[in-house]
């Protein structure tokens, strides 16, 4: 199983990530210890120059990690045919106990990497290194998550046995007292009210931030909230409408060809919008330097506009798929 091209790509991506992250982590420790902008010492000057090289490498590493989340889900979906009992990615992730932890760690890494990339983008726009300490501090938080994600993913792939009978989405989203079963059991109307309230508030928050040029932090907090609410909405009602089946709650089957890959259409804007909102929220509290004022004045509205537009697109897509479905859930 390890020689599946996508699995090899994922393992190589993680190996490359760790190979590059470990020296970057050591550099981050050195930087946090010795960084002193008031000093003109050779060490400080060298640190200032090296920070661009390290940041460029990290930009590449984290961009790879953003793509690897997509590849992991795609691979899990494609591998489902090889396991007895698996119908979609859920079955593949359930083959051994490391499947879902690997996915959740990749998700955490996705948001952390997005935040780091955005912070780096902002920091590089100012000439006086205003966020350099913070972004290398953040790197020291990302590093153990990336290492753990890599280890868990390797354990997951090493534990893939084709003779294992796995359980698929039907069992995950029904019966037992699990979070997923609770979400699946949520009344559709309640889920819809939650979804449209939170995403509506997020979009309004974004429009307000664009109009009045303030409140971006509130928008970021709403973006962070919108992500789990939207995922819950997918499980609670969107999947039912798309499958046109009142008991099929799986958020992974949406990625399959028989449903026209609509999952990618729904998830890409949702993930992108949430990541943008969260990254902005992580950066804003630290972006207080005078040199960043014009930078943030330029970047913040762009990011808010992009994220707001993507959340609006999500709402339109949810509404459209629910509207055109032949399934009647309400009324």
């Amino acid at each position: 199983m390890l020689f599946h091209p996508a699995i090899m790509a994922l393992l190589l991506a993680d190996a490359l990530t760790l190979i590059l992250l470990l020296p970057a982590g050591l550099f981050a420790l050195r930087l946090l210890r010795h960084w002193d902008l008031n000093s003109g010492s050779a060490r400080q000057i060298r640190l200032e120059r090296q920070t661009y090289l390290v940041a460029t490498v990290l930009g590449f590493v984290f961009a790879v990690q953003l793509l690897s989340l997509l590849l992991l889900v795609f691979t899990a979906d494609r591998l489902a045919v090889q396991f007895v009992g698996a119908m979609c990615a859920v079955g593949t992730f359930n083959v051994n106990p490391f499947g879902f932890p690997a996915l959740f760690l990749k998700l955490a890494l996705f948001f952390l990497a997005s935040a780091w990339l955005f912070m780096n983008h902002v920091d590089n726009r100012a000439p006086d290194y205003p966020l350099t300490r913070v972004k290398y501090g953040l790197l020291l938080i990302v590093l153990p998550v990336a290492a753990l994600a890599a280890v868990v993913q390797v354990r997951y792939f090493l534990g893939l046995r084709a003779d294992v009978i796995t359980s698929c989405c039907g069992s995950l989203f029904s019966g037992e007292k699990t979070v997923t079963a609770e979400l699946a059991g949520m009344p559709p109307l309640q889920a819809m009210i939650g979804f449209y309230s939170v995403l509506g508030a997020t979009v309004l928050g974004g429009l307000f931030a664009l109009w009045r040029r303030r409140g971006a932090l509130v928008f970021s907090a709403l973006s962070a909230l919108a992500f789990p609410v939207a995922i819950a909405a997918v499980i609670a009602f969107l999947s039912l409408y798309i499958y046109e089946h009142p008991h099929h709650h799986c958020p992974f089957c949406l990625l399959k060809a028989e449903y026209g890959y609509v999952g990618y259409l729904v998830y890409l804007p949702l993930f992108a919008a949430s990541a943008l909102g969260v990254a902005l929220g992580v950066t804003l509290p630290f972006a207080r330097a005078a040199t960043l004022a014009p930078v943030m004045a330029r970047i913040t509205p762009r990011v808010v506009a992009m994220a707001t537009g993507l959340f609006m697109l999500c709402m339109v897509l949810f509404t459209w798929f629910s509207w055109r479905s032949n399934l009647v859930l309400l009324g």
Binding site: L37, G40, I45, E48, R49, Y52, N124, P127, D128
Partner: peptide, 10 residues
């Protein structure tokens, strides 16, 4: 403005 370690674009 300190230009000692500015990257090339600055």
């Amino acid at each position: 403005q300190d230009v000692s370690s500015l990257p090339e674009r600055f």
